[in-house]
Nucleic acid binder design. Sequence first.
DNA 1: CATATATAATTAGCCGGTAAATTATATGGC
DNA 2: GCCATATAATTTACCGGCTAATTATATATG
Lengths: 168, 168
Amino acid sequence: MELEQKYLALLQEAWRRQLPDLESLRLCFQALSLASAIDRDCATMLAPHGLSEGRFVLLFLLDAANEGLAPNTLAEKAGVTRATVTGLLDGLERELLIERRADTNDRRALRIRLTHKGKQLTQKVFDQHSRWIAGLFGNFSAPERAQLAALLDKAAANLPSASRGSAK
Amino acid sequence: MELEQKYLALLQEAWRRQLPDLESLRLCFQALSLASAIDRDCATMLAPHGLSEGRFVLLFLLDAANEGLAPNTLAEKAGVTRATVTGLLDGLERELLIERRADTNDRRALRIRLTHKGKQLTQKVFDQHSRWIAGLFGNFSAPERAQLAALLDKAAANLPSASRGSAK
DNA sequence: CATATATAATTAGCCGGTAAATTATATGGC
DNA sequence: GCCATATAATTTACCGGCTAATTATATATG
């Protein structure tokens, strides 16, 4: 598998400086490069529909909640700030995939709902997207999956943000 | 290990829709979440020095080339566009870590050089950063490393951008 | 009731990435 | 020598993150 250009440069520099344990460095960069490649290919799949990953997440969250959701709830479930949600909703609204309605009880609040077009698009894209992702590991045997999960966990345990409360 | 909020939401939605092979989905999200956590912790380490990952990459590329480098060379070695390099250099120049000099032969071109301050900072940060990354996999045995590398490769082989020419 | 505090959403400004357009300069062929 | 084309760097405009500040509305408390 190919490492990203920047990681090749970093490895080369680490070698030049005779740093120890280049193997560990390479392993880390392999994991990071795989993740980047997955993200990149996901973005490539979503782009033709005018979607980014962030927009896509909001869409399926809304599709699951048939009474609509408030922006702050979307932010919480998507794991981004409310300011980011405002921006993503602006894009989705421009594409006529969602609409903002005033909340009847609380005049500060909004209900976000999928339009018909938004529902259709979400239906079409969600399954395709999930199946594609699952396909990446579809040819893994049960022991391989268990091994990989365990090894990833072992690396994660060495991270400061994992060991601590990690807050957010 | 904890999955990112958005992946939890996606898994939940996939379960609600009774999609097959949730195990593969989870495995993928575990890998992506680990990569995000590594990136986040790296950024946290670099931030106190006023560095982002992109800026850091330019610094050590410049440190390795003691005659200075042209912005287009930096872009190529860092794997980003020249426009991005322009922006990163603006930041580094503002922090007095690099300087832009006119190329004596080609009046279109620049030579970018580290300042003394830039050299010092690079020295200090590079080793620390590399050792920290290596530490994430420092407690892996040789067979564990081989296994992990093989499993990551196997997943990468299922990616469109890996199998194809993948362009740039 | 009045006031302080909390919450909802947006706005403004920053960052780092992109693509496309611009400006300046080299270079190669006629 | 001139013109077409390529290359160097920047600028502009966009995106999707973030934080911090603003505006409007609820809510709780003295």
